[in-house]
Amino acid sequence: MTAAILDGIVLGLQFGILGVGLTIMYGLGGVLNLAYGSMAVVAAVVVSFSMRSGLPAGLAVLLGILTAAGIGLALNLTILKPVYRRQGEARVLLSLILTIGVAFIIDGFLVWRFPIEVLSLSIGGNPVLILGVPMRTGSLLASAITLLTGGALIFFFRATVTGRAVRSVIQDEVGAQLCGVNPATTRTLIFTLSGALVGLVVVMQSMTSPVPISAGFEITILALIVTVVGGLGSIRGAMLAGLILGVVHAMSSFYIGSYITTIILLAAAAFTILLRPSGLFGKHA
């Protein structure tokens, strides 16, 4: 029971970070990035291959995260350019379709080049007891990094000038511009950050359980569920929804089984849309 809750909180933070990465892109650029998870799998592949070629783990992880960040940046500067020329619903729709295209290209490439690859970062050592629960070094490290990243994100959005500028663009783009904020620069920054976040989460996950090469779409859907439950565009909502769904996920897979768990998560997203389309903290009805 304690183990499930502890697991759930760490998992929830990961879900939260995953959701934040997707939701800021929606809030800022009106873009629903369905290539989100695929970007992260590329990061995991890079980590796995650089470690195999003898790079120290820390450096390999950094390289992987930078790769995902680079893909985010590249998407923003290339394929999403025509998307920004549209407004409102047409913009979201086009972004959704173009990024499905990107996801197909990335997934297709990965499955073609590395058909049976499973990515896992094994970090050895004996289990350590935390609150009477034995934890492996890998998952401890992952939890620590996750907690740190969650904290850093909250600090960034609450307390830094740049973080507040990002939130200002989400809340009122013209208002932000009147204050001297350049939305295009902010967007570039956020898409890079978004790539880094999803890369980080997936690398963390590969420390505790193996990530299959074809997991991209599933990760995207998971992030989408968190984002929808939290309210599209709401950073606070994504964090909270991530935590709740993480605990639900851990408890439910502990007591019921993983197949029902997936259905529960999907149902959570569906019911959120039906009952409260703006999500937990969303601003638009």
């Binding site: 379709i97 173009l98 499905i100 295209g101 197909f104 297709g108 490439f109």
Partner: peptide, 17 residues
């Protein structure tokens, strides 16, 4: 056929743009 996904993804982007 192993490149099918890549082809479909590319078509999707090209078509819509």
């Amino acid at each position: 056929s192993h490149l099918r996904l890549i082809g479909e993804g590319t078509m999707l982007i090209v078509l819509f743009l």
